[in-house]
Simulated assay, not measured.
Amino acid sequence: MSELAVIQYIDDPAIALDTEWRVLAANDACETLLGSGTVAGEPIESVFGPNRSLADRHADRLSHYPDAGGVVDGDDCHFDPDHAAVAALRDHRDPSEDDPDLGVFTDGTLAYFHCSVVTMDERDRRLLVFRDITQVKDREQDLNFLRQVMGRVLRHNLRNDISVVRTHAELIAEQSDDERAEWARKIVAKSDTLVDTTETTRLIEKAIEHNDPIAQDLETAIEAGTERVRANHPEAATGIRLTDLPTAEILALRQFEQAIADTIRNAVEHAEDATVEVSAELQDEWATITVEDDGPGIPTDELAAFERRGETDMTHASGAGLWLLYTVVHESGGEVAIDTEGGTTVHIRLPVEST
């Protein structure tokens, strides 16, 4: 069997090129990418060339999808020379991982392809493989839409509705002098917890979308996070101790201060008269921050979900707080470990900026 014939066994569109970037062979799957015309022997810039007539007929469709760089219509095809992936191929360059994926309309249906290049042999002949990632793109779009609904609609509406419930509960508490006042105060407290949870989910979303760590002073970030907790829980202020905080610039997301605050807050909210000790140490190019308390420990279901890093029903505000901590530290290039023997000890490992 010819070495070029092997490409027919590749499920995705594949094109073999010689050293001058001329097509040696293309598999049958290329019809979804290049149409039914013959491409063997043609230079790559001709294969991925513009067809102005075809482009004009599909102008509205192409302009609606920024990553769409091609149209296939029977034997004809059009590729936008300004699309980054197309431009790389036409310039005899391997497409970069940073280039956008190539969207191609075939019979009115948009498919997305990710182009990868491998060297076939010692003669530097290349094999282009266009992996069909349409399902992945569709999944990303569904998740983005869901995030918009959850973030911009449900969370906003939820905060407003909770505020209404909280206001009415406060009025009931003020105007009652029996057990209804106590019930109303519990509603107020739970409303505050729900609002905190919606804010935490917003911070998680921002941490994922804007995941560029910045240099920040270790001691300042921890002290600022601690003061947030002390301000909201003055009754627990004396039980929070900061010890052995070295001078260092850590690399972490902007949400780190809130994440450390949530970690401390979880400890003081889950235990009456809890003692929380926050310390840190430096080793090589890493800082390890330890938050230790003598409380009852993180609920088993929340800790199990955190360790699995999977989807679960998070019924406690501390569950969201754990995910904020994990997201911030993970996106900062660090690690989180939790020990629940004799209380809860959270170890946070973050990189230190090189001096």
Rank of each mutant, 00 (worst) to 15 (best):
G108H: 08
T247V: 03
E182T: 00
L89A: 07
D124P: 06
T200G: 12
S96Y: 01
D196T: 04
V153L: 04
W21Q: 10
R180S: 07
E302G: 04
D178R: 04
K206A: 03
D76E: 15
D262F: 11
R22F: 04
A40N: 14
S191I: 00
T200R: 07
V278E: 06
E257D: 03
A14M: 06
R57A: 11
S63Y: 00
T193W: 00
A84T: 12
E277W: 08
A87K: 13
G151P: 00
I162Y: 05
L194W: 06
T193R: 02
R228V: 02
R90T: 07
A25N: 12
T315G: 09
A173C: 14
R349D: 12
S46Q: 10
D75Y: 09
K186A: 03
V39R: 01
F113I: 02
D244C: 13
G310T: 05
G49V: 00
L62H: 04
R166D: 14
A221T: 10
S116K: 01
S46F: 08
Q175A: 13
V164L: 13
A261L: 09
N157Y: 05
D142G: 14
R52I: 14
E285S: 11
A59E: 09
Q148N: 14
E199S: 03
A207I: 08
R57Q: 11
V278T: 09
A87G: 15
H78F: 03
H64T: 14
H64R: 14
A236K: 08
T19V: 10
A287W: 02
G297D: 05
I250T: 08
R254I: 11
N144M: 10
E335I: 13
D161P: 04
V71P: 04
D18P: 08
A224I: 02
V47A: 05
R185S: 04
S46G: 13
P299N: 01
R155W: 03
D262A: 15
T288E: 03
T345R: 06
E281Y: 06
Y65T: 15
R61G: 08
I172M: 14
A85L: 09
G297A: 05
H114F: 05
F130H: 00
H92I: 01
Y326C: 08
L203F: 12
G239R: 02
T109M: 13
E3C: 04
R52G: 12
T327Q: 02
D56M: 12
P50M: 09
V104H: 06
L34V: 07
F113M: 01
E182K: 01
H83D: 10
P296K: 09
D161Q: 14
I10E: 00
R57Y: 04
D101G: 07
L33S: 04
H210D: 13
L17V: 08
L102M: 04
